[in-house]
Design a binder for these strands. Structure first.
Lengths: 123, 123
DNA sequence: ACTTGTGTTGACGTCCACGTCAAGTCGGAG
DNA sequence: CTCCGACTTGACGTGGACGTCAACACAAGT
């Protein structure tokens, strides 16, 4: 299959796929005419990349997962490096959520305070 | 006072202050030699901007607060537009936290699953 | 033969909040 | 006068994940 079909079936764009290739994330075989040639395996890789980035993973973070699939594992997270990324992301997420929660509380407090000042008179 | 002092006292850099000016956020008067001239009022504005961006507000979001102070109010959030930004940010934060929480749970589940697969054999 | 669709590469644009660098100007101290 | 620090402007870089455009080649359908 060519890049257009892979893009459609993978839920992305040809531009993104060429970009992935430029990062060495998704190298492509070339046909006689120089066009990129992909197979069903590549479609799996694209799905893996998309589902991970969709979750909020950076492209670099998807590399171990893709590598893992390419090594023949049935899932991208069957390798230690992928699991490590999970762990790191989880820690990042926890941290981020905690910080955002604190900020939210702070903004909430400021908002209440501002509202109090604006209508301190009856009711 | 000149830009260097304002930067030091405001806890930022001269580069940032010039950038704020380029955005029309913090216009500066100019002395005879063309140098930017600031006063204590500007320092307050800088503090307002810094404390808001420090919380995670975008520079554009600080505009109503700065404007509010410039209109003579004692706090930047004394104006309706500022309060509106509070509300919007609060909603954004809640939304963001919710989504991140869902992602975290998802990653957690995937992690557990991957760990199960890796050592399904006793203990 | 012609058009349409799909492919190719490369380069530049986007968003955000500045950092960094270059080359020059200005004021005051010694 | 010289030197230093502070100031000026402008241009380019950063990171992430592509979007957009140019200019071209190739294949299939009518």
């Amino acid at each position: 299959m060519r890049i257009g079909e892979l893009a459609r079936r993978g839920g992305t764009t040809t531009r993104a796929l060429r970009y992935y290739e430029s990062l060495g994330l998704l190298p492509a075989r070339r046909g006689a005419n120089g066009q990129r040639e992909y197979d069903e395996e590549d479609l799996r890789l694209v799905h893996e990349i998309r589902s991970l980035t969709g979750i909020g993973f950076a492209l670099e973070d998807t590399r171990p997962f893709v590598q893992c699939l390419r090594e023949g594992h049935t899932t991208g997270d069957a390798c230690a490096a992928s699991v490590e990324v999970y762990r790191r992301k989880l820690a990042e997420l926890d941290d981020c959520i905690t910080r955002l929660g604190a900020v939210r509380d702070q903004v909430r407090a400021q908002l209440r305070e501002a509202e109090q000042r604006s209508k301190p008179c009856g009711r």
